[in-house]
């Protein structure tokens, strides 16, 4: 094993990790927005939008992410929508995670005791006020563990966009291996970087969960 070769490859791997992190963060934010609003639409049973949201969730959850990536990157140009690889990747990842987050949000909103809504509206609050001030803050806390899961899956799924030539961590590892012929070492380094990224992320969410649960401490 050429030790110097491995040392030389580290900067490139770290740079590619930045791309992985970028894809993850942007997609998480967009997915949170999509998930949140589709959850509200489904709970509020808004006409038409409600059906659209249900079809969206059903289609996304019923098809592989890889197929979704191919449809967006290779398929959409056929009807005149050409996106560069990074945008396609972000679109696929956030649409995908958004569907799962939507279900998490929906479940967590429904998990808040009905008495909470009653207490809020019995003061004269509108449904929207009750949602904003009373229900959502509580449901967010309930949602954190499942959100955490979805985020982990999302970070790992960024490796799939390597197939549409986005130079993220996995793609870069393969490129380096093509030059160095050190698959075991390089892939292990890549795995370690994924592990560190995900651990940092879960730590952050754990801290947030503890912070938002402080009212439950005796």
């Amino acid at each position: 094993m050429e030790f110097t070769m491995i040392i030389d490859s580290v900067p490139a791997l770290l740079k590619a990790s930045a791309m992985t992190l970028f894809l993850s963060c942007i997609s998480v934010i967009i997915a949170l927005v999509i998930g949140f609003f589709t959850a509200l639409i489904r709970i509020g049973r808004l006409p038409v939008l409600h059906q659209i949201a249900s079809v969206y969730i059903s289609v996304i959850r019923g098809t592989p992410l890889l197929v979704q990536i191919f449809v967006i990157y290779y398929g959409l140009p056929q009807i005149g929508i050409s996106l560069d690889p990074i945008s396609s990747g972000i679109m696929a990842l956030s649409l995908n995670a958004g569907a799962y987050l939507s279900e998490s949000f929906r479940a967590s909103i429904l998990a808040v005791d009905k008495g909470q809504t009653e207490a809020a509206i019995s003061m004269g609050m509108t449904y929207g006020q009750a949602m904003r001030r009373i229900i959502l803050p509580q449901s967010l806390r309930i949602a954190i563990p499942t959100l955490s899961n979805s985020f982990i899956v999302l970070i790992k799924d960024t490796s799939l966009v390597s197939v549409i030539t986005v130079t993220e961590l996995l793609q870069m590892s393969s490129l380096i291996i093509a030059k160095t012929f050190e698959p075991l070492t390089i892939y292990l380094i890549a795995a370690a970087i994924y592990w560190i990224l995900i651990t940092c992320f879960t730590q952050l969410l754990d801290r947030f969960e503890r912070h938002s649960s402080k009212h439950l401490a005796q």
Binding site: D113, G115, Q116, E118, A119, A120, S122, M123, G124, I134, P137, Q138, R141, S212, H215, L216
Partner: peptide
């Protein structure tokens, strides 16, 4: 707004 309602299960806002 002008009617105070007290519930059997309190329904205080836990957060």
């Amino acid at each position: 707004k002008k009617t105070g309602f007290v519930f059997q299960s309190f329904n205080l806002f836990p957060h």
